[in-house]
Design a protein around this nucleic acid. Structure first.
Lengths: 230, 230
DNA sequence: TCAATAATATGACATATGTCCTTTGGGATG
DNA sequence: CATCCCAAAGGACATATGTCATATTATTGA
């Protein structure tokens, strides 16, 4: 993560996402513009929140890291998102790990600084409420969907999401270790494998090592129902 | 739901739960104190939020009602809780149904009134953020737990929760139609029945019609792991 | 390059859960 | 009281998913 020393650009981003409206003009918190390269990660697991980040450009992947090291995909953030909003007023230990999927630009604000300047600024507080409410809503809808569909559907949904979000151009889904994918989908490695193989046998995907090519987009879409990892 | 015309008592509740601190003293929203009898329900499903309620005394049961009529238990609220906080700034159609489990007292505030008076009042906004964040957190922890344990555990957790929350004195769990319970637990009627029967065979519960008596509290507790419906 | 290690691939079997169908019992209703 | 109906109870079987063991392949480090 590198700091971009360019206050004009910072102003630009603030304007573009109407962030200038949520901070008190006469008491702006100090912020830094930072860039992340594709693949770069912010590790925060276990600690308490120190900095709040606002994604203004690029795409992020959000993980949930468990004690045993296994990883769950939570979702993707694109163009605009806030990281750390939930933990701003409540000191939960962080569980999320964030990785940039493409070169991304974020605004970084120190938590204490943000609280000091915006503690009493209603537009900021309303902004926060809106975002947390939205997160809550989409997360419960997602959780509900995830828990009631079979692996087949969840896998289809996952493949489509990653395919669409990550590298449509290549029409390949690159996975990490399949063990991680299994954890992410909430099933055993064995079962993931079985299901993948079944997809291959049905001609829906093509698989070589950790590369998966989507062959029948429509069928997967049908299988995925309304599940979405976004 | 009956209105309690007693402004002294209202003041009393506001003080007791430190609610006087979250409303602007010079611009208090109009509120009504209302009482609910045990068993009484507030139907809100499908509509958009009109009123916000703050539970100040008693106990509430929160359900989620689906289009097909099936009902899912979301949890219980006791002594103090806010209903409608999520929908205050975002117009989601309501899905929750609320029933009083014992005589309860709530403060009722019209949504528009609340927004008009507190829109710019930071203490109220911060109060809201805190509560929504907490809800979010506990709900994702719960969802995670629920999705990864077998029915046996979820059933045990459910029985214990209802037992503890609802009528410990009688040591009976009264259920509604078992079909509803099955939906609530996210399984088929058949499977619920099978699992209940297995509990009976193991001597953990005693079952006659829709009454279930808990016999082995400890074993169920062990089974329930960290699942909680509260 | 080769051995050591980690990850993938797969078979066999057990368990969890769903679907379908039939029977039974209790309460509502005429 | 007889009848009807809904929900409970349960049998039979199918499918989804997990566990364990083992073989195969890829990766890495000396």
């Amino acid at each position: 993560m590198k700091t971009i020393h360019d206050s004009a650009q910072l102003q630009n981003w603030l304007k573009r996402h109407q962030l200038d409206e949520i901070f008190p003009p006469d008491n702006m918190p100090k912020m830094r513009l930072v860039s992340m390269e594709a693949g770069e990660q912010i590790y925060q697991t276990g600690e308490t929140l120190q900095k709040v980040h606002i994604l203004v450009k690029g795409k992020l992947k959000i993980f949930f890291l468990q004690e045993d090291g296994s990883i769950y995909l939570i979702g993707f953030n694109q163009s605009f998102a806030i990281l750390g909003d939930l933990e701003l007023f409540e000191d939960y230990p962080l569980h999320n790990e964030v990785a940039a999927m493409e070169p991304s630009i974020l605004i970084e604000i120190d938590k204490e600084e943000l609280l000091r300047t915006c503690w009493d600024y209603p537009p900021f507080l309303r902004f926060l409420i809106k975002h947390v409410s939205q997160k809550f809503h989409s997360s419960s809808v997602k959780a509900n969907a995830l828990s009631r569909y079979p692996m087949e559907s969840r896998l289809a949904a996952y493949l489509l999401t990653v395919y669409e979000e990550e590298n449509q151009s290549v029409s390949f889904v690159k996975t990490n270790r399949y063990t991680d994918l299994a954890n992410l989908l909430g099933c055993s490695y064995r079962h993931l494998h079985r299901t993948l193989q079944q997809f291959v046998e049905n001609g829906w995907i093509e698989k070589s090592g950790r590369h998966i090519r989507i062959l029948d987009y429509a069928v997967l879409k049908e299988l995925a129902k309304d599940i979405s990892y976004i």
